[in-house]
Amino acid sequence: MTGPASVGVDGGEGSEDVNAVQVEAPNFILCYQGAGLRYQITCPQGPRRALGLYVSSGYMARLVDAFGAEGETIRARLAAVKDDELYNVQMRLTRDAVQAIEQLLASTHAGVRELLFVEAKCMEILYASVGVWIDSLQHGAQDVTLSARDLMLMERARTLIDADLQKNLTIPDLARAVGTNASKLKRAFKLLHGVTVFEYSLRRRMEEALRLLVDERQAVGQVAAAVGYQHQTSFTTSFRDFYGFAPKDARQLRGADRVSAAG
Rank of each mutant, 00 (worst) to 15 (best):
V55Y: 01
A128Q: 15
T94G: 08
A175E: 07
S56V: 03
H139L: 07
H139E: 14
G179W: 05
A80N: 08
A157M: 03
E70H: 02
L105Y: 11
A106F: 12
R149K: 09
M91Q: 02
Y54W: 15
R75G: 04
W133Y: 06
E119K: 07
L160F: 06
A182S: 12
N88E: 06
W133V: 03
Q138H: 14
L104S: 08
I161K: 04
Y59P: 05
V130G: 02
Q90R: 06
T108L: 09
K167N: 10
M154I: 13
L53H: 07
L116T: 07
R92F: 13
D150P: 07
N181T: 06
C122M: 13
T170D: 12
S129E: 06
L78P: 06
N168S: 11
V118Y: 14
A175W: 01
R113M: 12
A76M: 07
Q142T: 11
L126Y: 02
A157F: 00
V112F: 14
A148Y: 00
L137R: 02
L174N: 06
I171W: 05
G131H: 00
D96Y: 14
M152S: 13
S147R: 09
D83K: 12
D135E: 14
A175V: 05
E124Y: 08
Q138F: 11
E124M: 08
Y127C: 09
T73V: 15
I74Q: 00
V89C: 03
V144C: 11
L137I: 04
G111A: 08
L116V: 08
D150R: 01
R113V: 13
I101M: 09
G131E: 04
E155T: 07
L116I: 11
R77Y: 11
I161S: 02
E72A: 10
P172T: 08
D84P: 01
H109E: 10
V98T: 11
A163V: 10
D164T: 06
R149D: 14
E155F: 12
I161N: 03
Y59G: 14
P172C: 08
Q138E: 08
V118N: 05
R149I: 15
R77M: 07
I101T: 10
V64K: 00
N181A: 06
G179T: 05
R75P: 00
A120M: 12
N181W: 02
R113G: 10
V112N: 13
L169K: 15
M152W: 09
V178Q: 04
P172E: 14
F117M: 02
A182T: 09
R92Y: 12
L93N: 10
